[in-house]
Design a protein around this nucleic acid. Structure first.
Length: 812
RNA sequence: GCUGGGGUGGCGGAACUGGCAUACGCGCACGUUUGAGGGGCGUGUCCUUAAUCGGAUGCGGGUUCAAAUCCCGCCCUCAGCACCA
């Protein structure tokens, strides 16, 4: 047999698969469905190793389940709106649409060269009007349902470029393009009321038992449900109250100061009373330049005392100072806190810096609050009538008392914020809303959808697109009164596009609806979703939310979109993420050309466990290439019956090894998502077969094992396996051949080797029958020469046989 | 800072529910095949030792007959933090 020519073989099968359209799927109620989904890629230019990792996993699942006899939906699309296309447009003087189109063509070619078994007939692109028509349609549905609203929000504003900046476009409070200091500007924005679903998003975790604890706890924290108390602190000399939220009402007697966020309205409301207003407003401007992460992560707390006003703690009846400090965020709670330096480290640091008293109200064992805040449980002290009770009980006792006294009430708050979906950018789906002087805000009528994004726009060096000055776009008739009105020029956040694409895959070509329920009901929910861990919170919460809204609108009947989730680790290089901005992207083409798609796929699955980060290196690619060639060369070996050389391997040994491998590979793919160990066990079987290869008169055993081996490898290295399968005389595609089964009897060993530990140290091994009793084992141990030597002159304190695992003996 | 991961040979990693640490692969060394090179095939490869003994899973403690795995306290590192997707 000639040397394996990956270029020829891979091209041959890719063409065959494409021409025969075997991977195009249709609804078939008689067949069990399997929906395998990968996170929608952004067409950034070239495929990178993170994509290859993601889709190699997906393709293994898709192919594995096809072989298991399921009707598989597996396709791909493009998350094509968004910032990088605009940046490229400005940099290279190319229209975003054109840039995106080029990138998609390039990446599509690469995906095909990797042999992924996509149903290309269902491919979608989010910037295609046929797609975003329905994104806009959903937006209107949500508006009608009262889930869309407008309110003011802070944006990063570059005063020189006169444009809104994304967080990514700001580093160290400076605009990335012109280096000028950014400002925070308040603009009216569109929001979606995701907080209406906060509780359900949290409760829904109960039905996501197959998701990793890691993702669930990240989401839980992101949603951030906390039980606490809203408490009013009076401001003497004014009619204002300072409302705060705390999860620690038990510490109310330890409050020695208050902190409000720099954006807090009270500062403006009591402006006339504030003696150092000038300094305070300077501080507010300075903190406005920092990002939230900068504000919160700095260990050295900053802030300023607001002179002229105080707060009255109704628990202690004492007046305490009010500060403003940027470690308190306006978005969370009420934007103001009661500070308890003795029991919160952030407050403690602030108190030390500003020389504020620290009053201990929770007593811990041997703990000195003058050195550090005590944040654990304890007994209340210095707390009036509540002194002496346990802090765990105090939450209820104190908050009930506060409610009774009438200066606060128990409440639940979430960290989850309403979803800001408007973008002051060009390259996105236009928000389908119209401002009419008479009728107010009116949605575009359904028959006018999609609101097409005009293509004839200029973009300037400053990173600005002239959608607002495009008269044919903005001047419109009000759908209600037919008088002149103005169109919204903001576009929709791309996270909206990617919140429902998996439903469009179910019915990609429908021009009358986003999808029909019959099809969605058949394919949904997604059986296996695969993507990066970095999406654990935002995308995966938005998509779950969107799905629940659609359920409530009556479009689908399920509660959760993704049954199983596999979060792959990042592919890094030198320990840091590959990204266009870092310029450290490894293009898969190099190994694709040299070694082929099968080796590339095999390598990326074998190199590291899939959930873990994989630091890129070419070391090891050779080993995968070698395996493919060893498998290829075995074809001749199993067909050469004439060579009769004594083999030290028995027929039954190799059959047993085969059954064990089938069991291991099936389990690793289906249950454990452990592709690296599945592959290593296939490698072991190949090694076994090489040791066995020259066995005379093997009654076709080597051929049987070889066929099984090819079937096991088929989802991972499909081109090689199709080729060998054909050479073995099969006319059907291996891609649809039945997955091998194993015989449980052949997996069990009759005799096993058991280690023997004496006083916790390994001292020897014995071979016993698998069903031996403890008495028989004891006998075998005593008759072992080496062990009995150890046991001589010693008293046996304890003898334990853990069945099929270990013998331990404790001696004196 | 908060939240969530991770740390095992020269390297990527394996180890079921607490039960033989280092499977599989890379690299390296030696042998063999070959005119040579490449490639293939085979053997060896945690440290220490002639061998036994002994020691080793980021660091320090603890629980247990038995700990990479469980508990307590540290260190290092990666990811996310709401306008990148």
């Amino acid at each position: 047999m000639t040397e394996y020519n990956h270029l020829e073989v891979e091209k041959k099968w890719q063409e065959k698969w494409s021409e025969s359209k075997i991977f195009e799927s249709k609804e078939d109620s008689k067949k069990e469905k399997y929906y395998c989904l990968e996170m929608l890629p952004y067409p950034s230019g070239d495929l990178h190793m993170g994509h290859v990792r993601n889709y190699s996993i997906g393709d293994v699942y898709a192919r594995f389940h096809r072989m298991k006899g399921k009707n598989v939906l597996y396709t791909v699309g493009w998350d094509a709106f968004g910032l990088p296309a605009e940046n490229a447009a400005i940099k290279n003087k190319i229209h975003p649409a054109k840039w995106i189109k080029q990138n998609i063509a390039c990446m599509r070619k690469q995906l095909k060269a990797l042999g992924f078994s996509y149903d290309w007939n269902r491919e979608i692109t989010t910037c295609d009007p046929k797609y975003y028509k329905w994104t806009q349609w959903f937006f209107i549905k949500m508006w009608e349902k009262g889930l869309v609203f407008r309110k003011n929000a802070n944006v990063n504003w570059c005063p020189v470029c006169q444009t809104v900046l994304a967080n990514e476009q700001v580093s160290n409070s400076v605009c990335w393009r012109c280096d000028s200091h950014i400002e925070h500007k308040v603009l009216e924005q569109w929001f979606i009321k995701i907080t209406d679903y906060a509780d359900e998003l949290l409760e829904g975790h109960k039905h996501l038992g197959e998701w990793s604890q890691q993702v669930l706890s990240m989401q839980k924290n992101w949603i951030g449900k906390s039980y606490g108390v809203e408490i009013d602190f009076k401001i003497p000399g004014s009619d204002k109250n300072l409302k705060i939220f705390t999860t620690r009402p038990d510490t109310i007697f330890g409050v020695t100061f208050m902190v409000v966020a720099p954006e807090h309205e009270i500062i403006n409301e009591l402006k006339s009373k504030i003696k150092n207003y000038k300094q305070v407003s300077q501080y507010i401007i300075a903190s406005g330049r920092k990002s939230n992460i900068e504000r919160v992560s700095n260990k050295k707390k900053t802030g300023i005392k607001i002179e002229g006003i105080n707060a009255l703690n109704l628990a202690t009846k004492k007046e305490i100072p009010i500060f403003t400090a940027d470690y308190v965020l306006t978005e969370y709670g009420t934007g103001a806190i009661m500070a308890v330096p003795a029991h919160d480290q952030r407050d403690w640091e602030f108190a030390k810096k500003f020389d504020i008293p620290v009053i201990e109200v929770i007593k811990g064992n041997n703990f000195d609050v003058s050195k550090h805040a005590y944040e654990d449980e304890g007994i209340l002290v210095n707390s009036g009538e509540f002194s002496g009770i346990k802090s765990v009980d105090a939450f209820d006792v104190v908050s009930n008392w506060i409610e009774k006294q009438g200066f606060g009430k128990k409440t639940v708050i979430f960290k989850l914020k309403d979803w800001l979906v408007s973008r002051q950018r060009y390259w996105g789906a236009p928000i389908p809303m119209i401002y009419c002087d008479r009728c107010g805000i009116v949605p575009v009528s359904e028959k006018e959808l999609p609101v097409l994004l005009p293509e004839d726009v200029e973009f300037t060096e400053a990173g600005k697109f002239h959608l607002k000055t495009n008269k044919t776009f903005i001047n419109v008739k009000c759908p209600k009164c037919c008088k002149a009105a103005i169109r919204e020029t903001d576009t929709i956040d791309t996270f909206v596009d990617s919140s429902w694409y998996y439903l469009r895959y179910c019915d990609s070509h429908n021009d009358n609806a986003p999808f029909v329920s019959v099809k969605a009901d058949y394919w949904m929910p997604v059986d296996q979703y695969i993507g990066g861990i970095e999406h654990a919170c935002m995308h995966l919460i938005y998509a779950r939310f969107w799905f629940k809204v659609m359920r409530d609108l009556g479009f689908i009947k399920y509660d959760e979109p993704f049954t199983n989730l596999l979060t792959q680790g990042m592919v890094t290089i030198g320990g840091s993420a590959m990204s266009k901005s870092r310029g450290n992207i490894v293009n898969p083409d190099e190994i694709l050309i040299k070694y082929g798609a099968d080796t590339t796929r095999l390598f990326i699955l074998f190199a590291a466990p899939i959930q873990k980060q994989f630091d890129w290196s070419f070391d090891g690619v050779e080993g995968c290439w070698r395996l493919i060639n060893r498998v290829w060369c075995l074809f001749d070996v199993v067909n050469t019956k004439s060579i009769a050389v004594a083999s030290h391997k028995d027929k039954n040994d190799i059959l047993r090894a085969m059954h064990k491998t089938v069991k291991k590979v099936t389990f690793d793919i289906e249950k454990e998502c452990q592709f690296n160990t599945a592959i290593s066990s296939i490698m072991e079987l190949v090694n076994e077969l090489y040791l066995y290869k020259y066995h005379a008169n093997d009654d076709g055993v080597s051929l049987e094992v070889y066929k099984t081996l090819i079937l096991l490898l088929a989802p991972i290295t499909p081109h090689l396996c199709e080729e060998i399968w054909e050479k073995l005389g099969n006319n059907e595609y291996i891609s649809f051949h039945t997955w091998p089964v194993f015989d449980e009897n052949m997996v069990k060993d009759s005799s096993i080797e058991i280690p023997i530990q004496i006083n916790g140290k390994l001292k020897g091994k014995i071979t016993i029958s698998a069903d031996a009793s403890e008495i028989e084992v004891n006998k075998a141990v005593n008759s072992d020469e080496k062990i009995s030597n150890y046991l001589k002159d010693k008293q046996i304190v304890k003898f334990t046989y853990v069945k099929n695992k270990i013998v331990t003996i404790v001696v004196k």
